[in-house]
């Protein structure tokens, strides 16, 4: 445990100095502030923030995770020759880079919400949106880790898959489902749509935002079906449970690949 916190602290310090993470936090700070000043404030701001978050966080998280693996290759190999268990090292590196990224988003978005007084008005929704951003960060940094470890010697392929996975999950997914529904419109498809929504963490997060703000029409077809089928509270619980599954799978597979890998 001591060694784990030792690694996390050292990574944190090194990252904070990089200013990169600070810039990322400042982007969310500026964005939220501008949205609050010009967007009318209140739920609309949180919704706009969610839309940016749902697109932006998965991409940044994955790129960040995979870049870390590629840039720190020799260093990670040196650390692996020290008397330390591989899983301790994995958690140390993973948490050491995902915690600062997560904090940058949460703090950057939270500060304007506090000073414009939105946070006190709508604590529940704010916590939900920021919490979802935090969970998405954890999921996609570990996906980046998995991709970096899987394509350890082939960076082009690693980055290629990262972009394709992001495009697919963040942009194309909802459209593809809509297309399938349009194509197979004569059949009862509710269960199918619910199942496929669960297979994409970004869709899950989108559905949770949608259920929270009760604006199914704005958030795509999958959201509408989800809303109708589950009703609000049950829907949120199911989507949250699925997000936890999504959190565990990439982390676990990353750990698994890291422990078995030949470096």
């Amino acid at each position: 445990m001591n060694k784990l916190t030792h690694i996390i602290r050292s990574e944190l310090k090194s990252l904070m100095r990089g200013k990169w993470v600070m810039g990322y936090g400042l982007i969310f700070l500026a964005l939220t502030d501008v949205l609050l000043r010009f967007g009318g404030g209140g739920p609309e701001t949180l919704l706009s923030l969610s839309n940016v978050m749902l697109l932006f966080i998965p991409l940044v998280g994955m790129i960040y995770g995979i870049l870390y693996i590629y840039q720190s290759r020799e260093f990670v190999e040196l650390l692996l020759t020290q008397p330390i268990a591989r899983n301790t090292l994995y958690w140390g590196l993973y948490l050491g880079i995902s915690i600062p990224l997560m904090s940058a988003f949460v703090i950057g978005s939270l500060l304007p919400l506090i000073w414009h007084g939105i946070f006190v008005l709508d604590v529940g929704s704010t916590v939900l949106v920021l919490g979802l951003g935090a969970v998405l960060t954890l999921i996609f940094v570990s996906l980046g880790f998995v991709l970096g470890l899987a394509f350890y010697d082939d960076r082009i392929k690693g980055f290629g898959f990262t972009i394709v996975i992001w495009l697919f999950m963040a942009i194309l997914y909802d459209g593809l489902i809509l297309f399938l529904v349009f194509l197979l419109g004569d059949y009862p498809l509710d269960k199918f749509v619910i199942i496929v929504s669960m297979l994409n963490p970004i869709d899950l997060a989108r559905i949770m935002v949608m259920l929270e703000f009760d604006i199914s029409a704005l958030m795509g077809y999958t959201g509408a079906v989800f809303n109708r089928f589950f009703g609000s509270s049950y829907g949120v619980i199911t989507a949250a449970a699925m997000l936890v599954v999504w959190l565990v799978i990439p982390m676990w597979s990353g750990l698994n690949v890291f422990s078995k890998k030949d470096f």
Partner: peptide, 17 residues
């Protein structure tokens, strides 16, 4: 590995350390 010291061929370390 407590008994082992290793000096790698390529020395690359975290930049901001």
């Amino acid at each position: 590995r407590r008994d082992i010291g290793y000096m790698p061929q390529v020395a690359r370390y975290p930049e901001n350390m």
